[in-house]
């Protein structure tokens, strides 16, 4: 698999405070990679390092195979766009001029991409309006448009829906999906809003206390969090026989619990198990949400450690 971003035991300290510790991440090409973590888990610190705003205390990272210490990283960064923390836009310039400004920074031969980008982010009617007068959502979209100047292959977004109203959230989400699906842009997003991430990400990285707790693909996560009926029984072997006969998909968790993934007629199941001498103590729908999965990974300690 080709990776756009990889880190190797990356660390960042501010004085005695360790914001990132031996952090490893691998962002596959074409993915929407969601970094999920509490406030202060170290998400923004990671993005700052990746964007070259700060230097790691130890460890390395590579973008498109170019190591952060090498000269090639400069070329690799030209394939990047980013919105870290607040949208980086000149408030006293119009949306159009903000984009032109970024075209100049990139040395693009002309400004032909400007109308297209404004349309892409839905700001075509506000192109001449000063960014100072934009709503938060509009600023966010303009920030993304600025990041898209120069047609990057890799987009880094830090909490892109933070503070947006529901409509703004939908617009930004659709924009990210569009960029990923139509332009094949790899997106790295940080967020602490799990529900939102669930609607976007193809890969997840769960981060806590400056460390990567688990990397998992959306498919794997889906399987883990799949809806099922969970039964507490006395004889799991008997359950297996019955469920095989009924041609139902299931998974035996431990000595007393079975997850059944297909729709099941509970009366028939209980009767069949009873006939084989197996008692059913409890049976209930089980639906592990992303939230509960996250909490099971990082624990329920409140708040972060101020790493963002």
């Amino acid at each position: 698999m080709e990776y756009v971003l990889q880190t190797s035991a990356l660390g960042k300290s501010y004085g005695h405070f360790k914001a990132l510790e031996n952090f490893n991440i691998a962002v596959p090409k074409g993915a929407i990679y969601g970094i999920v973590g509490r406030n202060g888990a170290g998400k923004t610190t990671l993005l700052r390092l990746v964007c070259g705003l700060q230097t790691p205390t130890y460890g390395t990272y590579s973008i498109y195979g170019a190591n952060n210490g090498s000269l090639e990283i400069i070329k690799a960064r030209r394939r990047m766009g980013a919105v870290v923390e607040t949208p980086s836009i000149y408030l006293d310039m119009s949306a159009e001029n903000n984009l032109r400004q970024q075209c100049r920074i990139l040395g693009l031969p002309d400004f032909s991409c400007v109308p297209e980008l404004l349309e892409l982010v839905g700001l075509e009617s506000a192109g001449r309006k000063k960014a100072r007068n934009f709503s938060l959502g509009m600023r966010q979209r303009l920030g993304i448009a600025v990041a898209l100047c120069g047609s990057p292959d890799f987009l880094v977004l830090d909490e892109p829906v933070n503070g947006l109203d529901p409509q703004g959230i939908v617009e930004v989400r659709e924009l990210i999906l569009k960029l990923n699906q139509e332009r094949n842009i790899t997106v790295l997003i940080s967020s602490h809003i799990l529900e939102e991430m669930h609607k976007l990400a193809t890969h997840y990285g769960f981060i806590d206390g400056g460390r990567m707790v688990r990397e998992i693909s959306a498919q794997e996560l889906e399987a883990t969090c799949r809806k099922c009926v969970r039964a507490d029984v006395s004889e799991p072997k008997a359950v297996a026989l019955v469920l095989d006969e009924m041609q139902l998909e299931y998974k035996i968790l431990d000595g007393r619990q079975v997850d059944i993934y297909d729709a099941v007629n509970v009366s028939k199941l209980v009767r069949a198990l009873s006939e084989r001498g197996c008692e059913v103590y409890n049976i209930q729908n089980h639906d592990e949400s992303l939230e509960s999965y996250f909490l099971s990974l990082v624990g329920t300690g409140k708040g972060g450690d101020g790493r963002d």
């Binding site: 964007c51 400069i74 990047m80």
Partner: peptide
């Protein structure tokens, strides 16, 4: 200072300007 205040210095560094 405007580059810091508006955060636009990030737009320069992120895209490979040293």
């Amino acid at each position: 200072n405007t580059d810091y205040n508006d955060g636009t210095i990030r737009n320069k560094l992120t895209v490979g300007r040293t």
